[in-house]
C-alpha cells in the first residue's frame, strides 16, 4: 500500500468516526436525514459495483430492497434480530442468483426492461400472497430501534460496501469487469469467465441492497408492498450513481449526497410534481454528463492544463 492509499484510509476513518458521533450532537430530524442519505449512498455504491463497470443498467434495486424490508417484517417476531438480517441476506443472495442466471445473458435494453418488470412482479406477488394467503394488508414492525440505531447499522454497511468496492477495483476482477463492460467477446477470449464474474458481482451488489432494505425497515413501523416496492427507489439510486459517476469508487457518494438533499426538499415543497422533476433531472444528467460529475471535473481540469 502506498502513501496515498494510507492517507485516503486515514481520512476516511476520521470521517466515519465523525459521522458515527453525529447523532449524539444533532437533532432527531437531522439524524433522520443522515440516515436516509447513508441508505442511498449505500444503495448507489452497491448498484454501481455491478452496473458501473458492466454497464448493465438494473432497475431491480427496489425488488431486493423491498424483499429485505419484507423479510424483517415477517420474521422480526419469530427470531432474534441478527438472525433476521442473516436470513434477509440469504434470501437476497438466492434471489440474485436466480435472477442473474436467467437474465445476465440479456444485453442492453432487454436487461433494463427485465429488471424493471422483475421489480413489479415481486411487488405483485407479495401483494397477492398477503391478500390471498396470509390475509394481511400490511405489517407492523416492532423493534426497539431509534433512528440513530438504524443509522449506525447503515453506516457500518456503507463502510463494508466501500471496502468491498475498493478491494474489487484493485483486484484482477475489477479489471475483468471493466473489460467485459467494453467488449464481452474480447474479455472472454482473454480468459475471463464472463458469466461467472457478472453473476458474482450481481449477487454481491444485490445482497447489499437487500440488507439496506432490511436495516431500514424498522424505520417505517408499518409497511405494505406499495411502500417498500416503490419504483422511485430504483430510479433515484440509478440517477445518484450516474450523477457522481458509476465507474468510480467515490462517484455514487458524490451523486447521492446532493441529490438526496434535493429530493428531500422537493418532496416536501413540490409533492405533486416530484416525479416529473425527477424525470427531467434524469434526462439532464444523462445528456450533460453521461460519465458523471467526477469525470466531468477531470475533463475540465485536463482541458484547463493543455
Amino acid at each position: 500500500m502506498n502513501m496515498k492509499t494510507l492517507h485516503g484510509f486515514a481520512l476516511a476513518g476520521v470521517a466515519v468516526v465523525l459521522l458515527a458521533c453525529a447523532p449524539l450532537l444533532i437533532s432527531d430530524y437531522w439524524t433522520g436525514v443522515l440516515l436516509g442519505m447513508t441508505g442511498y449512498v449505500t444503495l448507489a455504491t452497491a448498484w454501481a459495483l455491478f452496473s458501473g463497470p458492466t454497464r448493465y443498467i438494473s432497475l431491480a434495486t427496489v425488488a431486493f430492497f423491498g424483499v429485505g424490508a419484507y423479510t424483517v417484517a415477517v420474521l422480526n417476531e419469530v427470531m432474534p434480530y441478527p438472525l433476521v438480517l442473516l436470513c434477509a441476506a440469504g434470501i437476497g443472495m438466492i434471489m440474485a442468483l436466480m435472477v442473474g442466471l436467467s437474465t445476465l445473458r440479456l444485453a442492453g435494453v432487454y436487461f433494463v426492461i427485465f429488471t424493471f418488470g422483475l421489480a413489479e412482479l415481486v411487488r405483485q406477488t407479495v401483494s397477492w400472497w398477503e391478500v390471498n394467503v396470509t390475509y394481511t394488508m400490511g405489517r407492523y414492525i416492532f423493534l426497539p430501534f431509534e433512528g440513530r440505531h438504524i443509522y449506525w447499522q447503515l453506516l457500518a454497511l456503507a463502510v463494508v460496501t466501500f471496502l468491498i468496492s475498493w478491494a474489487i477495483g484493485r483486484s484482477r476482477f475489477g479489471l475483468a469487469l471493466k473489460a467485459l463492460g467494453d467488449d464481452e467477446t474480447v474479455a472472454a477470449h482473454a480468459g475471463v469467465d464472463v458469466t461467472r464474474i457478472k453473476l458474482l458481482l450481481f449477487v454481491i451488489s444485490s445482497t447489499i441492497i437487500t440488507l439496506v432494505g432490511a436495516i431500514q425497515a424498522p424505520r417505517w413501523t408499518y409497511i405494505e408492498p406499495s411502500i417498500v416496492f416503490n419504483p422511485t427507489v430504483s430510479f433515484m439510486t440509478l440517477i445518484m450513481a450516474l450523477l457522481g459517476g458509476a465507474m468510480r469508487l467515490w462517484g455514487p457518494l458524490v451523486g447521492a449526497v446532493p441529490l438526496f438533499l434535493l429530493f428531500e426538499w422537493l418532496s416536501v415543497s413540490f409533492p405533486d410534481h416530484f416525479s416529473i422533476i425527477l424525470g427531467l433531472l434524469f434526462i439532464l444528467i444523462v445528456f450533460v454528463m453521461p460519465n458523471g460529475v467526477l469525470a466531468k471535473i477531470d475533463d475540465l481540469r485536463k482541458g484547463g492544463r493543455t
Partner: peptide, 11 residues
C-alpha cells in the same frame, strides 16, 4: 491494462 487482462486471466 489491455495487455494485463490477458496476463491476469491467461494460463
Amino acid at each position: 491494462e489491455n495487455v494485463q487482462l490477458s496476463l491476469a486471466f491467461g494460463k
